[in-house]
Nucleic acid binder design. Structure first.
Length: 577
DNA sequence: GCCGTTTTCGGCCCGACTGTTTTCAGTCG
């Protein structure tokens, strides 16, 4: 069982947590945190890089020492440093860091004074009123901890982007209606379009002395106001989502938006560029001494730092700063580039609308073509199609196309990839289709090698064109099946197959880092809605968000092509490479 | 622990808010 990047990242984070509680050099702690973040976001398997003899210390922020430690973890060995730290600091203690108001110093103090090394012991101490006997713990902090424990804090889960949008947009409108408000934008990971968000960061500019904070705190959906200042306030909405609002003067709006959009790593890199020029960058602007050089817009700030404006989706310190400096930023795909949609269902299987309804709705969204991809028979609960029913659907689509103007419905299927890698319908019927989308809906728990071989075997069938939701993950609900995604991508490229970025907000599969890997490997990605109703055709935008985070340009996206070009690229007898 | 057209040593992003304080440490983003 190979060690996956997320496991390595979590080991490194654990080291950072424990070092922090021990009071280690904060920059050493940061080095571990940055390494964890880097490893967690690498598209390639670190275990495989180690096996291939790649130099890990060529990675930014990884020196000889960390390279050695990462290689150790990647090969399944124990990290002596971690063992040592766990002897000194009880491992359960790190869970305390997740509580609001508890950082390394206070956790350390609690452990020293009362021997608290777990949430349970903290709860007991709070209940018996011992907490305020610890130096630095007054009634305020005690009350806050008691409340957090009662609410089961420490388990806050990030919410899906689409879910966050549902509460964010009305709040944004509420703030825009406030007296004296000039500009309001949502920043943070929401603006970077991460697949999930931990909280919302809102930046506003306003005329001085206007009651914007009152408007914010008085929002009807507020459960609690946890911080209330003149320039910064924090509320918790009734659904548990925390929202921060920062209000600045108009001349600082761009700087504040830049700062609160992050990511943190991107900001730090920008500040270092500013420092190298003897300038100071903060949320109020870019300064030379006391003189403000820029601040009203992000564009000005980037330009004064010798950079071109970086789209928020790329601000992860993953090479975008160098690309910006060299004017080599990608021209990211936009919703307007999308010409078609290659995965959707109808009433024939588990969809809610007819083929014609889906076609009309897609055309109204500006698409020129769609593919109808109902399930095949193996997914019985969806009333999947057998060969005979698919044959009738083919005829129905032919008749329908004859009556459509400037729009084409492609005959297709989402055929099940069975456990042995064979397809759920015979070639003789698949051959009559315009394209074949294949997907796994069963046997999720195969060993990694076997799952990978299953997908490669499915793609061996020259009738298969697109591998749908390639990892099978459901955000916040189910990890993907174990699979060597890079091997699948290489296999797809050799065979002239393509991979899907499923745009359902709970799938987003391929994810952003896999998209970037696909691009590096020269593989085209189909961004598809997998719509089960006309209303879901709009989910395309969530797919676009992740594609942009994955640096994809229109030329990397299969369904940004015209129908004629698409048909050419779907031909398996002429490999794309 | 990392890193280097100012450095192989001495730096490492910066500010707001809270609570517990009499001028600031800790936490957070």
């Amino acid at each position: 069982m190979p060690v996956v990047n997320a496991d390595i990242a979590s080991e490194l984070d654990k080291v950072a947590d424990l070092l922090e509680i021990e009071g280690a050099n904060p920059f050493r702690v940061r080095a571990y945190r940055q390494a964890a973040r880097l490893v967690g976001s690498l598209p390639r398997s670190v275990a495989e890089m180690v096996a291939a003899g790649d130099d890990l210390d060529a990675l930014p922020g990884i020196g000889q020492d960390l390279a050695g430690k990462i290689a150790l973890i990647a090969t399944g060995k124990h990290l002596p440093l971690l063992d040592e730290l766990e002897r000194e600091v009880p491992p359960g203690i790190t869970a305390l860091l997740a509580l609001p108001g508890l950082g390394p110093k206070r956790v350390h103090a609690l452990h020293e004074a009362l021997g608290i090394d777990s949430i349970d012991k903290l709860a007991a101490a709070a209940k018996s009123g011992q907490l305020h006997t610890v130096a630095g713990f007054g009634p305020g902090i005690e009350a806050r901890l008691v409340r957090a424990l009662a609410e089961g804090a420490g388990q806050a889960q990030r919410v899906k982007l689409a879910t966050a949008e549902q509460v964010a947009e009305p709040l944004l409108r509420h703030l825009r209606g406030a007296d004296g408000v000039l500009q309001v934008e949502i920043a943070g990971s929401y603006r970077r379009r991460r697949e999930t968000v931990g909280d919302l960061d809102i930046v506003a500019s306003a005329e001085p002395g206007k009651p914007v904070m009152d408007r914010f705190a008085g929002y009807e959906d507020v459960a609690e106001v946890t911080e209330r200042g003149t320039t910064r306030s924090t509320i918790v909405l009734r659904n548990g989502l925390q929202v921060d609002l920062r209000v600045v003067a108009p001349e600082s709006f761009g700087a504040a938006l830049l700062y609160f959009t992050g990511s943190k790593a991107h900001n730090i890199a920008l500040r270092q560029i500013a420092m190298a020029r003897n300038l100071k960058l903060n949320e109020y602007g870019l300064f030379s001494g006391a003189k403000r050089l820029a601040g009203a817009t992000e564009q000005d700030l980037y330009e004064r730092l010798g950079l071109t404006m970086v789209p928020p989706e790329l601000r992860e310190d993953q090479g975008e700063i160098d690309a910006s400096r060299q004017k080599r930023l990608p021209h990211l795909v936009t919703l307007d580039d999308i010409r078609g949609d290659l995965h959707m269902h109808t009433t024939a299987s588990d969809g809610h609308d007819s083929i014609l309804a889906m076609a009309r709705a897609a055309q109204a969204l500006g698409r020129a073509y769609i593919a109808i991809t109902d399930h095949s028979k193996h997914v019985a609960v969806t009333h999947g199609l057998d060969a005979a029913r698919l044959a009738r659907q083919i005829d129905e689509i032919d008749r329908l196309n004859a009556g459509l103007k400037d729009f084409t419905v492609l005959k297709a299927i989402e055929v099940d990839i069975l456990e042995d890698g064979s397809l759920d319908l015979p070639d003789r019927i698949l051959r009559r289709l315009d394209l074949v989308v294949g997907a796994v809906h069963s046997a999720f728990d195969l060993p990694r090698g076997q799952q990978t071989a299953r997908l490669l075997k499915a793609m061996d069938n020259p009738l298969l064109n697109i591998l749908a939701h390639p990892t099978g993950r459901l955000i916040n609900a189910r990890p993907g099946y174990a699979v060597d995604i890079e091997a699948v991508m290489r296999g797809a490229r050799e065979r002239g197959c393509h991979l899907e970025l499923n745009a359902q907000p709970d799938r987003l599969d391929l994810n952003d880092t896999s998209c970037r890997l696909a691009k590096e490997l020269g593989l085209k990605v189909a961004i598809s809605t997998d719509a089960h109703a006309t209303t879901q055709l709009g989910h395309m935008r969530f797919g676009i968000d992740q594609a942009r985070r994955g640096w994809l340009e229109p030329g990397d996206v299969l369904n940004a092509a015209s129908l004629a070009d698409l048909r050419r690229m779907l031909r398996r007898d002429v490999p794309a490479v």
